[in-house]
Design a protein around this nucleic acid. Structure first.
Lengths: 181, 181
DNA sequence: ACAACATTGGACCGATTGGTCTATACTAAG
DNA sequence: CTTAGTATAGACCAATCGGTCCAATGTTGT
């Protein structure tokens, strides 16, 4: 059950880092939530808390990428895909503890640590690539697709922050109309 | 020199919270940077670290509002105003330690504390209002101005995050062309 | 059965956390 | 000069921080 313990740690860490930030989350908290003891943590993640943060951010990033692909799979235009995605994230915001972007909370919260920054850049770039891929699938040329991907990525991250400040998902729900106008 | 000590604390706290986040910054660090001792801090800010965070965020928010107004004052269209503003922030990013939005780092970094959230919402709303005011000054009707303000606010916050992840100001510099297209 | 290795539990550590408290120094009003 | 209120310095505190370490347990191959 090696991977089980590892997975439990990643899931617990992802949730806590997302909610309280990297520096706002204690190792003991993660351990308690995961139902795992210290020995196991440092066995699976020799780098300790920092290792766990990078792993959990990658996990969260991949999970969100899947959500993006599912949102775009069920629609037939870029605009409706954006609509579906923003609605999905807004629902996540309203119904779960996804009140902040996990990458922002986990990797960019504190120290401009090199591995953290590199991981964050990689994950954002991946999202941007996925957005661009879908845009081209709907007929956009390369340049237009890049522009649309940048717009969506920036808007999403920005709206997520403002939504957290307001305690409401409205900013996230506004994105489709803002990108249309 | 009452206000001097208070101002020194606010300035030191604003810089440190912005760079390392609220939870990533220790009270001792702030004290050391400000050249002030503990007694003074808790005299001027009875609420301690949290009080200081709210005060420094308001200070940073007001400072940035001034930058916005200056950027828009020197131009004669909304587009050139946006250009000037984004360039100013990008320069700040490249030349100083303003590699993150102070509100994001200071108030939204960790706990979804009520006073923190309220202050952050207030400051963002203020920025949005200032953006809208300038848009209307350039002839936009109320609705269009609101839309432009939302777009700019979300883009700015989002690009700031992605810029931090990349360690480059490029995302911030892209905003004008993204908003034009 | 045995050995080698993977995994876990948890005691323990020094450092740092934010915060309290008191003695002292400064300043202004009488 | 005295008094009252403001401001500062820093010792001190319990709690928590992330991390190390080792004994015990589980697992696997021979």
């Amino acid at each position: 059950m090696t991977d089980d313990t590892r997975a439990k740690l990643i899931r617990a860490a992802a949730a806590l880092f997302r909610e309280h930030g990297y520096n706002g989350t204690g190792v003991a908290e993660v351990l308690n939530r995961a139902g795992v003891t210290k020995g196991s943590l440092y066995h699976h993640f020799p780098g300790g808390k920092a290792d766990l943060a990078v792993a959990s951010a990658h996990w969260a990033g991949a999970w969100l990428t899947k959500q993006v692909n599912e949102s775009f799979a069920r629609t037939d235009t870029m605009a409706t895909g954006i609509e579906a995605l923003c609605d999905a994230i807004a629902e996540l915001f309203d119904r779960t503890t996804w009140t902040a972007c996990p990458i922002n909370s986990t990797l960019l919260d504190g120290a401009t640590n090199e591995p953290f920054q590199a991981a964050a850049g990689e994950i954002f770039e991946n999202w941007r690539a996925v957005f661009g891929k879908h845009a081209m699938r709907y007929g956009a040329d390369h340049h237009t697709a890049q522009v649309q991907a940048d717009k969506l990525l920036f808007m999403l991250e920005g709206a997520w922050i403002v939504a957290r400040a307001q305690g409401r998902s409205d900013p996230l729900r506004k994105i489709p109309s803002l990108l249309a106008g």
